[in-house]
């Protein structure tokens, strides 16, 4: 229901943009749009585990930053591209684990922990970047990537496998993102871990009473969130063929926005991986469309804010509407029963 509504919105938007802007509806733009959506989408996908579990992660941007620098440095060793990407994922997962342990073992609140670690990771990114230039002061230097096989992973499908099939103009990351979104949908809805994630987000006390190890489920959620941020970062660097330490800031909030717009409640227990996917497409489509219309940037910020508020209000009023409907039905049922007795 909620998902269909958002998908409908996306389609209407696309239609309007296609009709109004002649540079919107073409393969080239769609490939670019889908790459941006994939980057944001991977972050949102990871974040959805934390948010469905009733938490929040503000460190995704920081993880993107530090992993970008680490990946670019690692790629200079000349390892195959796939190894660099795996390295990025592992680094991201490690930073996620740090978040998870701080939250679950040290008992800090998630908001403060990830706010702090997010800044810290950004700092680590800067540190590694500066080491590279050998100067303590001075401007941030973008590091050009020279590792060919790594660069190829950031490109289009055609660059990897030759010009074949319908996918040739799309990026590898886009395809991986869609595949992972489907896989994560399955993980959340069909596995014990997924079930427990919903449980701790919806009613932690009840989950605990049922023997769910809340701290463990939470920690795993943060690890997944970090791993996805690492993956997104590794691909982004390969695509841009350069990394600098200013990368990543602000993405954490866009990812949260994508989740909220897609229908993952901030309080936890609601939504799924497909919500994160749709939410990301929605946000990126609007940004892209506005860009094509040459509408000034400030409008896109204002509009993003408005959309988040509208989505939240919609969810809240829809929930209360559903509750009233249910109560009325229950009232009628118990009334009928009372008549029969």
């Amino acid at each position: 229901m909620r998902k269909l509504a958002t998908v409908g919105f996306v389609l209407i938007l696309m239609l309007v943009f296609s009709l109004q802007a002649d540079n919107f509806f073409n393969l080239r733009n769609f490939s670019e749009l889908s790459f941006n959506a994939a980057f944001l989408g991977l972050l949102a996908l990871g974040l959805s585990f934390v948010m469905i579990g009733g938490g929040i992660d503000l460190s995704a941007g920081g993880i993107v930053c530090v992993v970008a620098i680490l990946c670019s440095r690692f790629s200079f060793l000349g390892t195959p591209g796939i190894v660099v990407v795996v390295f990025g994922v592992v680094c991201g997962a490690f930073f996620g684990l740090c978040n998870g342990l701080l939250v679950s073992r040290a008992g800090l609140t998630e908001f403060v922990t990830t706010l702090a670690t997010g800044i810290l990771y950004q700092g680590l990114g800067l540190l590694f970047a500066f080491r590279d230039t050998g100067k303590l002061s001075g401007t941030l230097v973008s590091m050009g990537i020279t590792n060919k096989s790594y660069l190829a992973l950031g490109g289009r499908f055609s660059a990897l496998f030759g010009a074949r099939g319908a996918l040739k103009d799309f990026h590898l990351m886009t395809v991986i993102w869609i595949v992972l979104a489907v896989a994560m949908y399955f993980v959340l809805r069909r596995t014990n871990f997924g079930l427990r994630t919903y449980a701790i987000g919806s009613h932690p006390k009840a989950a605990e009473m049922s023997g769910v190890d809340i701290r463990r489920v939470k920690t795993i959620g943060f690890v997944i969130c970090g791993a996805f941020a690492g993956l997104a970062s590794a691909f982004l660097v390969a695509n841009m063929s350069a990394a600098n330490a200013s990368l990543g800031s602000g993405y954490e909030f866009q990812a949260i926005a994508a989740c909220v717009v897609g229908g993952i409640a901030l309080g936890g227990g609601k939504g799924d991986a497909v919500c994160a996917l749709i939410g990301s497409v929605f946000l990126v489509t609007i940004l892209n469309g506005l860009y094509k219309f040459n509408i000034p940037t400030y409008w896109s910020y204002i509009l993003q804010g408005v959309i988040i508020i509208v989505a939240t209000v919609f969810d809240a009023s829809f929930a209360s509407f559903a509750r009233r409907l249910r109560e009325r039905r229950a009232d009628r049922a118990s009334g009928e029963e009372a008549m029969r007795l």
């Binding site: 079930l195 919903y198 449980a199 987000g201 919806s202 009613h203 006390k205 009840a206 989950a207 009473m209 049922s210 227990g269 609601k270």
Partner: peptide, 11 residues
């Protein structure tokens, strides 16, 4: 009650 509202009866 110690039930999780978001899950089904069986879950």
């Amino acid at each position: 009650l110690s039930l999780v509202p978001a899950l089904t009866v069986a879950e």
